[in-house]
């Protein structure tokens, strides 16, 4: 058994950790967690360290430390579910309000489970039963794991969904999800069991929703999915896959996909999109063609302004 790369205390509160650290790699992850392993493999998983803390008259505390390829991957895992108590600590501890205003949470807590991102590490610390003592220890372990990792910014592609002050559209950070895998996409927004957009480790993607309140308090919503491919050619393949499989009934009029943005009214609203260099911009479930076009233009503007194309 190897020892953990992150030094965890032998004793904390009344808990004592196992002497050994269980190390899980891509080859053994399914033995450890069955199909859940697909999630971590979808985020450029390197390895996992598992430590258990035990105490008399208390339930065990499980610590799972996932080592990933980049801070973006750790951000992505946390972004799957932003609900829970938002936690800020470490190097921004002293200016919590400012941190809350400008950054995504570093950790989230609820019912005995703390999830956190720290550099390229994502961790889950879970008490099998939440007690005040267990919660205190969970937070202490979270701070230890986070220590030494500078606050990582959100993935760059997230900036593409920022909304200008003058816009009538609104967004909220709890709806921002960073991903690279179609399985993860399906767990957030089901598109197809088949990987029709050719997502893989080489892409960066963000899924989000925009909304605005129009006349008569009518709420308008749009789902946007932006993918950065490694090349314009790959983005073109992604667009082709979307048209061929998702817009099957419009196939004859859309193939080959035009560089001009096209939207179609489908069962759940307007959908469509276009390619901008190596970026694929997809709009889904829009209440109107106009709304779909506005959101796409908003993202387009962010690409141009950011010089990302």
């Amino acid at each position: 058994m190897r020892r953990s790369g992150i030094k965890l205390p032998e004793h904390i509160g009344v808990w004592t950790r196992d002497d050994s650290v269980r190390r899980i790699d891509a080859g053994s992850i399914f033995d450890y967690m069955n199909g859940a392993g697909e999630l971590y493999l979808g985020y450029r998983f390197e390895h996992l360290e598992v430590v258990e803390y035990r105490a008399e008259n208390e339930y065990d505390i499980l610590v799972e430390i996932y080592h990933l390829n980049s801070p973006d991957d750790a951000f992505g895992l946390l972004s799957l579910d932003w609900s829970g108590e938002s936690i800020f600590w470490g190097d921004i501890h002293e200016n919590r309000e400012e941190a809350a205003a400008r950054a995504y949470p570093i950790a989230l807590y609820g019912a005995g489970l703390l999830r956190l991102r720290a550099g390229s590490v994502y961790a889950r610390i879970m008490a099998y039963r939440e007690t005040p003592a267990a919660k205190q220890v969970i937070f202490a372990l979270g701070e230890i794991i986070s220590a030494g990792h500078p606050l990582a910014p959100a993935p760059e592609i997230i900036h593409l969904i920022s909304i200008p002050d003058a816009s009538s559209w609104q967004g909220w950070w709890q709806a921002h999800h960073f991903l690279r895998s179609h399985l993860v996409l399906n767990s957030l927004y089901y598109l197809s069991h088949v990987n029709i957009l050719s997502l893989d480790h080489d892409v960066e993607a963000v899924l989000t929703r925009f909304s605005r309140t129009g006349e008569g308090e009518h709420k308008e919503e749009v789902t946007a999915f932006i993918i950065a491919y490694p090349s314009a050619e790959k983005a073109g393949e992604g667009l082709l896959g979307f048209y061929r499989h998702y817009l099957l009934d419009h196939e004859s009029e859309t193939l080959p996909p035009s560089e001009v943005d096209t939207f179609y009214q489908l069962e759940e609203g307007w959908a469509g999109g276009g390619r901008r260099g190596r970026f694929l911009l997809l709009i889904l479930n829009a209440n109107s063609r106009l709304g779909a076009k506005e959101v796409l233009d908003l993202i387009d503007g962010n690409i141009t302004q950011g010089g990302m194309q």
Partner: peptide, 16 residues
């Protein structure tokens, strides 16, 4: 092209 395998999508689910 016409004989391409149809893959299940969200739209199939929405349409029932």
């Amino acid at each position: 092209m016409k004989n391409r395998r149809h893959c299940i999508t969200r739209r199939d689910f929405t349409r029932g």
